[in-house]
Design a protein around this nucleic acid. Structure first.
Lengths: 340, 340
DNA sequence: TTGAAAGCGATACCAA
DNA sequence: TTGGTATCGCTTTCAA
């Protein structure tokens, strides 16, 4: 078995308390004994048992990431992986660890994430894929367990979150289309129970209003962010008699689905229909034609969320933080040039 | 603070040992005291502190997932998410938890995954994205820390792994192309330091041999699995003077990149060049034309790897297990029909 | 500056 | 069938 603090103490010829002091970089230890201890630890290949440490400290230095496995769209999101990367790198750079957990526990009465919290395995949660009146937010608040959101909840006071500028992103995409001369722009939005969808709708409508264009409900549909729904909803619009010359999709994946439907109708992109997406996932540059889209700083969003949570846990931050990260329009070829 | 086992004991009017017996479903406890204890636990909203439990049990019931953040391709892989899903669902159904960890620790001397192992935070590892002579395998073996691979390592004896049938998958893809009448088939393979690449190459060559076709090194290139490399390598072949009528890409993402390059040359898919991919990621059905590809049971691979590791840890399994999961050819439209 | 001892919250052995 | 107690490996007073 691996060495314990006692072994180190014995080898160094000091007490365990001293070893603990040294290993935790506390002051008031003489240079000489410090060296002795360090050398002993080194020789024995000693690593503290974090279970034992957490038991007394009542903190595990571990964050939990809750991924809702119901929302299968999250898992199709290439950007989900990018967020994990941002989170996990940050977490580690602060000396923390990351535990992932899904919302449901099949064959178990308890939601597994709550279980993990109650069993003292983690210090705080990062929530992804936030819905309107998200049950996780309600439950964690009730249990008074610390957490931050990637995504926003307008009703949640006292809760910190990091989110892309959805309104601004949608606005930018729409202005681009409008500047290109489009006046009838279909909108493939996300599900109605996501705040994201409201924000992107807001951007859509502001842009229309700015340009004194009418809002036509026949032009908007709600999908679930993945290709298939983009495809279906686009077909619906295509098969109805409404006319339009452009589509704004609330995700790149839906934009891809829409492109497929458009092509199947024998229409050309961008000549007949222009398309804009949202996210700028890696595949966006490889659609045919390459997709013009709104880029969100996904990695940074994850990283920042993790940082904020850690600062809250370490009591370096007391007020809630609501951070809106900037988005950027990436112009490729799916919108073409100005219409006459 | 939350209730401890002592609180429960006090409220139920029994000893802590009895509470422990009840809560762990040990026999030899009278129904009556069992009920008392359960009710007390319920009332106090008691959940055992897993830190304390792990300390005495010397097991954490937590598995670690090592994701190499150097290999940025992993993160672009939509399938990576699917694997996590398989792993995390399985892990939970066995009452385990999942901790994710990356290979490198910037600003830290230690690889963070080793750190986690040494600090007794997890019981075993699942490794993804296995390279030839993968350093993680070497290190974990040296530390005698339990782990399983998603992917194979031909030299690693005593190590269990789960992997798709790469040889067979490649073979199936190639036979399809050959049956369609193709004789000059380009191969966009993965990096040379991956066993996967060797296996897919093996499938490629077996298929050629079967059909008595020549192996032409000018037709093969090694990319890194993501779109950009498929695009670049396809261009290289296109710009060289070699002729070919089909491409087999070792990943769907590379196939997408290749399609872009082919279209840019003004060639049609599948009329001029047929394309087959590997993976069957969600986006494969939405390329233009929809991609014919080899499907791997990604979710199941993750699930099985987790299950095997848990069985090893629980000493229900002693021999190493080498499982090759079947692949399946999904025919869409990127290969067209038989050539004359 | 160092050491002894209590305690974190559980399990498990041994008695009763 | 139940209870007392040592123990897991560490941190943290408190004394020396």
């Amino acid at each position: 078995m691996s060495a314990t603090i006692k072994d180190v103490a014995k080898l160094a010829g000091v007490s365990v308390s001293t070893v603990s002091l040294v290993l935790n970089n506390k002051p008031r230890v003489s240079e000489k004994t410090k060296r002795k201890v360090l050398r002993a630890a080194e020789m024995l290949n000693y690593y503290p048992n974090l279970m034992a440490r957490s038991l007394v400290k009542k903190r595990t230095n571990t964050l939990g990431l809750i991924i809702p496995h119901t929302a299968n769209y999250v898992f199709s999101f290439p950007y989900f992986v990018e967020i994990i990367r941002g989170i996990s790198n940050t977490v580690r750079s602060f000396g923390y660890r990351l535990m992932v957990s899904t919302t449901y526990a099949e064959n178990q009465k308890q939601s597994s994430y709550l279980q993990i919290a109650r069993e003292h395995l983690i210090d705080g949660f990062i929530l992804l894929d936030i819905k309107l009146r998200d049950e996780r937010i309600i439950e964690l608040k009730r249990e008074q367990f610390p957490f931050v959101l990637v995504g926003k909840d307008p009703w949640a006071k006292g809760i910190s979150y990091v989110d892309p500028d959805d309104v601004g992103g949608a606005l930018r995409a729409m202005r681009h289309l409008i500047n290109l001369g489009h006046e009838r722009i279909a909108f493939l939005n996300g599900p109605l129970d996501y705040m994201v969808s409201f924000d992107r709708m807001k951007g859509y409508r502001i842009a229309l209003a700015e340009a004194r264009l009418n809002y036509d409900p026949q032009l908007v549909r709600h999908g679930d962010f993945v290709q298939e729904s983009g495809y279906q909803k686009m077909r619906e619009i295509l098969n109805s008699s409404v006319d339009f010359t452009a589509v704004f999709a609330a995700s790149d994946l839906m934009a891809m689905g829409a492109m497929k439907a458009i092509k199947e109708k024998g229409l050309r992109i961008p000549e007949d229909i222009a398309v804009v997406g949202f996210d700028d996932i890696p595949g966006a540059a490889f659609t045919d034609p390459p997709l013009t889209t709104v880029r969100q700083p996904i990695y940074d969003i994850g990283a920042l969320a993790a940082k904020i949570l850690i600062e809250i846990l370490e009591k370096k931050r007391f007020k809630e933080e609501h951070i809106i990260m900037p988005t950027e329009l990436i112009i490729r070829r799916s919108c073409g040039f100005k219409r006459d």
